[in-house]
Design a protein around this nucleic acid. Sequence first.
DNA 1: CGTTGCTTTGATCGCGATCAACCTAGGTGG
DNA 2: CCACCTAGGTTGATCGCGATCAAAGCAACG
Lengths: 223, 223
Amino acid sequence: MAALQARLPMRNPVPLQPAPTIETASVIRRVKAGETIYFEGDAATCCYRVVTGFAKEYSILEDGKRQVLDFYGIGEMFGISQSESHLHTAEAITDCTLRCFQRDAWLHAVTASPDLSQKFMNTLMTRLHRSRERLTMLGRMSATARMALFLMRLAEEQNSEQDVRFPMSRQDIGDHLGLTIETVCRILTDMKRRGIITGSTARLFSIPDMDALGLLAHGDASI
Amino acid sequence: MAALQARLPMRNPVPLQPAPTIETASVIRRVKAGETIYFEGDAATCCYRVVTGFAKEYSILEDGKRQVLDFYGIGEMFGISQSESHLHTAEAITDCTLRCFQRDAWLHAVTASPDLSQKFMNTLMTRLHRSRERLTMLGRMSATARMALFLMRLAEEQNSEQDVRFPMSRQDIGDHLGLTIETVCRILTDMKRRGIITGSTARLFSIPDMDALGLLAHGDASI
DNA sequence: CGTTGCTTTGATCGCGATCAACCTAGGTGG
DNA sequence: CCACCTAGGTTGATCGCGATCAAAGCAACG
């Protein structure tokens, strides 16, 4: 209960409800860390839900620049859109177990059931809101403020201010926040120096001073 | 037919289909250019569809910085989310005629009808995609490339490369693209100097060289 | 005509990118 | 078990894009 999002080779602890057909028709796919789940442009025959592990979705520009659009943890759905081909590329960050649904069947099932359709609309609206918060981060917040807000959201998702994990690399964080890997490092180092966060290893940190982090996220560079 | 998005005191030319109850239950609201439609935090009792005019939705940070999240033209729905209060502020750019729906009734009607729910899910997925394209713009594209892509999208929406209108101010464009008003001006001036766009007035322009604009959007600074 | 608000242009500054080493942990083979 | 190798992470020096500060142009309105 403490370690929500406990991410590794451990069965999904939540027993499935008496399965509707769309669940029983689904299959499991396992992908290793770093493997691509689908490429931009691939026929979107399947959509996915994370059973275990952590994944990301990103786009790549002609010049090779990447933008990480979203990260997906346990229970999150991805790979579904209005288009019949995938609009972005998805990749496993840690080893993943994914539940795959036939896109058409899934959309049909959702449209047919008021309950499912309400749930799905809520997911979409929440995700749109998340995307818009990020727009504001990238458009109008300083590098430090972006990083601070990112850390806060990460801690929220993991329900803890202690031993928060970065499943993703520095490069992923940079590509998510519109920063270079060097800037990400420098900001993290600086936050450690100031005692706002502590980190034993590069992928694990704690937030002893959440208030200060909140101030940074709101643009108060001082402290 | 030429001037799609013709925006002013002119009745909606498309006759309404035999109205389902949710349409008949709706009311019309008129707002003047610059008026706020709703503020962030307001109870989200209503959601809206643009009948005539042009509107925007934005968020404001503590330090007064604005991020314009989206623009809405004729036929577009806005002001609906998973939350019971509005998450952002909406404002009329030109004089607007809006169709207002009771949020709860509207959500109920959508959930109940497979047809409506499919349409709404499509709208949400398309909007999420639009938001993600903007994330990529803000995160990884240069000021010039952002501006070029913005102009291309504007021309697409208006179905023309001739006499494309900016309904929004330079400030709005800047706040949308994460740039200052000065940078927006300088880039437009530079594009004019290069003959990629022409503009008689500040709010009206044409794109004689769409290919060059496309190259700029893809980061080819040369030409 | 003067006022007002939007737009444009110019001069300078600073944040974050870029280029270049160096460090560190984890994995591999001898 | 240690020496090596490699990928990811960190730090330093410098550069340049876009922000900021300042002022002038310009169009719509009374």
